[in-house]
Amino acid sequence: MGYAFSRADIAYLASPAGAAALAGAGDFALTPASLLKDLERIRRDHGDHAPALVETVRLRRRAAAKLEGAGEWLFTDDALQQATPSPVARHRARRLAGRTVHDVTCSIGAELTALADVCPGVIGSDLDDIRLAMAAHNIAARRNVLLVKADALVPCSTAEVVIADPARRADGRRTHDPAKLQPPLPDLLAAYTGRDLAVKCAPGLDFDKLGWEGEIEVVSLDGAVREACLWSPGLAEPGVTRRATVLSSTGAPWTLTDADPDDIPERGPGEWIIDPDGAVVRAGLVRHYAAKHGLWQLDPRIAYLTGDRVPEGVRGFRVLDRMEFREKPLRAELHRRDCGPLEILARGVDIDPDALRARLKPRGSQPHTLVVTRIGRAATVFLCATP
């Protein structure tokens, strides 16, 4: 849960004295091993402010990998966990450039900063006084952003676009039930019927059960699926209902939609196996990705792809051998090949990769990768070179 900040904490942390104290606290390691000793020393210098100082320094360190320019920001633990990574927020803001936007679940303001760069007017609202006070500090330099306290389920602005990010926890646990989000997704959609709306969702939601009439976009960043976003029909590209967007910290982004071709051949396994980006898989665009890159599926029901070449910038696994999935002959083959470090990928079969690795007991020096999957009714393993 993290430390429970008060309004007095925020006023202190945002003051010159608080800023100086935070700079001093930043010199401490604050690791699990040193935390008690460090807290004791900080408490000696700053009294009751010590817990807020320590929590803020630790949260800022975590935020550095997620939010750009947030070194002076204030957070709560939960707010930081839910905050949109900066590259993802910028991507969404680009789709809304030039419009007025109301973020009805603005929290500590991570989304607002990206919107403020490209939108003429931005409103942020929330019911949490602490998060609103933190947002006011975090976006103090943004003159085109207005903050208000308001219920996300009660429309209170005439902004051209409404965006929302319902909290994904219920009773302290992460939930994939739309009705248990906060605010509940069905209630949120009903509150803004007829409005241009963009709603962040967990990528694990069952999209087929949502009955969404606009576009569902699944976004990944550096190989990890980060979120899904529901775009209402007025914000969706005509003819597109599913989109996968792949963002990278080092390369150019790319996108794929269900309007792209999806005709692929039915052939046996090729020289390579490719595991598509998670955004492609979650968006249901595996065939579209395959068609774009001259690949085909190992099995129509499985997301692994195969082909005789690997798309540029993608990790592929070169097939060395194909076997029926039986552990005893597989163990013998791994031993024969002097297999040591062993990566195991599995899809369509009920296995625990860590438990399987322990049973196979690879003790050699050569790294290999196993791709365990189902082709038809048969469990099959591909022994591959590790890229």
Results as ranks from 00 to 15, higher is better:
A279P: 04
C384I: 09
A65C: 08
L67F: 03
A150R: 14
R7E: 15
F207R: 07
A64H: 10
H293I: 05
A290M: 01
Y192K: 08
A23N: 12
L205E: 08
R60Y: 02
L370C: 00
L115Y: 00
G98I: 06
I302W: 08
N138G: 00
G214K: 13
L330R: 08
G69E: 03
L197R: 11
M134W: 08
G2N: 06
G307K: 06
D187G: 05
C384D: 09
P203N: 07
T31E: 11
R94L: 12
V314F: 07
E312Q: 14
P51F: 06
R336D: 06
A179M: 07
L189E: 12
Q366D: 13
V145P: 01
P16D: 08
A150S: 13
L188T: 04
V57A: 06
R336G: 00
R169G: 03
R41M: 13
T175F: 00
A136P: 08
R58M: 13
C106G: 04
R267V: 07
R58D: 09
D187N: 07
D308T: 10
A379S: 15
D208A: 15
G121N: 12
D321N: 12
M134P: 10
L247M: 01
G109F: 07
R62I: 07
A116D: 04
A79E: 10
D338Q: 06
Y289P: 03
G47W: 09
L74M: 01
Q297G: 11
V381E: 11
I344T: 05
A224E: 15
L127H: 08
V280H: 05
D48L: 13
A355H: 09
A65M: 10
Q82M: 11
P300E: 05
R363V: 12
R318F: 02
L221D: 05
V246L: 04
S107D: 09
V154L: 14
A198Q: 12
R267F: 09
R60G: 05
I274L: 14
A50G: 09
K328G: 09
A79S: 15
M134C: 09
G172A: 00
H91G: 05
D187T: 05
A116I: 04
P341W: 08
I302Y: 09
D196G: 09
P155N: 03
A133V: 02
G2I: 02
T105F: 11
P387D: 04
L59F: 03
R357F: 00
A291F: 00
A25L: 06
R226C: 14
A170R: 14
L153P: 00
L22N: 02
T175P: 01
D260Q: 11
L36G: 12
D171P: 00
C201S: 10
V314N: 05
P203L: 03
D263I: 14
L153M: 01
I274K: 11
L256E: 01
A23R: 15
C201I: 15
F5S: 02
G251F: 12
V225H: 09
E55L: 05
D126M: 10
A23I: 11
T250Y: 09
T255W: 12
E324N: 12
H102F: 04
A25W: 00
R90W: 13
A20I: 10
F317Q: 09
V162S: 03
E227M: 09
S34I: 00
L295D: 10
P238R: 05
P186G: 03
L345V: 06
M134G: 04
I108M: 04
P16C: 06
F382R: 11
K209W: 06
D78H: 07
L80H: 03
R99Q: 14
